[in-house]
Design a protein around this nucleic acid. Sequence first.
RNA 1: GACCCUGUCGUCUAAUUGGCUAAGACAUCCGACUUUCUAUCGGAUAACUGCGGGUUCGAAUCCCGCCAGGGUUGCCA
Length: 436
Amino acid sequence: MSVRVRFAPSPTGYLHVGGARTALFNWLFARRHGGKLVLRIEDTDEARNTEEARAAILDGLRWLGIDWDEGPEAGGDYGPYFQSQRKDIYDRYLAQLQAADLVYTEENGSVRFKFTRRPITVIDLVCGDVTFAATEEPDMTVRRPDGSYIFHFVNVVDDIEMGITHVIRGEDHLSNTWKHIDLFNAFGKSAPIYAHIPLILNPSGSKMSKRDEGSSIESYQQAGFLPAAVFNYLCLLGWTPRADSEKLDRDTLVSLFDAKEIHSSNARFDIGKCKWLNSQYLREMEPKALLDASRHQLSQAGLPIEKASHAAAILQSVKEKVSLLSEFPAWVHYFFRDDYPYEVEVVAKLRAKEDNSTLLEAAGKALEAVGDWTEDSIHAAIELAAKEQAVKPGALMPLLRGALSGQMRGPGVATMAHLLGKSAVLNRIHQAQNVI
RNA sequence: GACCCUGUCGUCUAAUUGGCUAAGACAUCCGACUUUCUAUCGGAUAACUGCGGGUUCGAAUCCCGCCAGGGUUGCCA
C-alpha cells in the first residue's frame, strides 16, 4: 500500500513554526517513501477562519518549498479538500453511526458518540505503543446543534475518505488519539499508523504558540532568513539526520529521513543556531541570487538599485560577514548614496592625528593617477602612497575605510574603492579632509 | 486532580543498543591573523547524564520510587 499522509491546518492564523515543521515531516515522509502529501484545510469553525489566514498558510508552505500533491490549487481525486465543502460526506458517515446505534442526540440537538470504554492502544512510530485505559470521560460531541461537525469527527472521516496511511502530527494530539481510534473502529476501519512529533517550545519552555515572538513563518521571511536555511533548521528540531554535517540540502534530508528516528522529547527553538545556518547558506549563494533574495530588503531601506550586476557585486563583497539578508543595508548603504553618516569612531579616528589629512591627500593623489581602476592597481596605489609618506599601509587603510564608508568595518578597502568608482572615491576623500 | 509524553553542557543533540577519559554543533569567553569586521583560524569554559535506590564485573542505557517540565482532559483545531 502506498503511503498517503496529510497536513491539515486550520486557517485561523498565520503558519507558525510548529505547523510548518509538521508539514515538513509529512513532506519528508511522503517524498522518502514515494507517497502522496495531501493538504487539507480544516475550516469547520466558521467563526474563526479567515481568507487571509488560508492564503498565509499556502504562502508559507510555498516559501519553504513544501509542495503538496493533492489539495487546494493542486486538485486530486479525494476532494473537496476544504472541510467546509464536505458536509454531505459527514452527514453520510453520521448516518452510518446512527444506523449502528453508536450515537445519540441530546435535547439541544447536539450529537454525541458513545465511547467504547475499553482500553485503546495507539501504534506510534515515535512514542511506541501507548495504551490508554478505558475512559471515564463523557461521550464525545461530534456534531453541534447547528449541524456543524467537531474536529475529532471530521478528522477521522477525512482520513478514512482520503485513504491516509500515516498520521504525522504534533504530540499535543497524542492524548486524544484514542478517541480517534474509537471512531475508526466504529466505522469498521483500522486506524492509521501514527507518529506524534515533539513540540517546539518557546524560550520560556512552553508550547510555541501563535502569540509567541518569532512564531510565524512570515516573520522569518521578513527578517531575512532564506527558506532553505529555515527548512534545514526545522528538520534539526526533533530529528538528527545521520550525517557528518548539519547543513543538508533537501534531497539529502529526504534520503536520510526515518520517522522512527524522530525524538520524543520537546525541543526549544534556538534562533541563534537558525541564524548561523542561514549564514552558511548565504555565503554559498551566487551574486545574482543574492541580489534577487535581497531586493526587498534593499528597497525597504531606501537603497536604489541602478545596475543589477553592480549591486550584486556589492552584496557579494560582504556576504560572508552577515547572517541575515536584513543585515545587508547597514553594511552597504554607503555604496548606494553619498550622504552616508560617519560613525563616531570614524570621526575620532580621522581626528586622532594631525597629519591624517596629509595622508589622505597623498592617497587621493595616488588614486587619481590610477588609470586602470582595478582592485590590484588601487591596492598598489595605496601602498605606494603609504610608502611615500613613510607610514605602514596599516596606518592609511583605516583612514580610507572611514572616509569612503563612514564605518570601521566592511569589505577590503581596495574592493570598496573599486566598487565605489574613481570619482566617488576622490570626492569622499576630499570630504573626509574637511572633517579633520 | 487524572491521564499521556519527556528529562545528557546555556541551547540542539551523539554515545557502535550494557563496555575506553560522555562526543559534536550553536552560543559564550580568550588568543592569533588581517587595513576593518558580527569574517577567518586556534584554544578554553561548560553535563555527578533530574534526584534516590536497585540489578550487574560494569549503567546515560535495564528495574522501582520520587521530582521537574511539557501536553491532554471543549459543542477549538
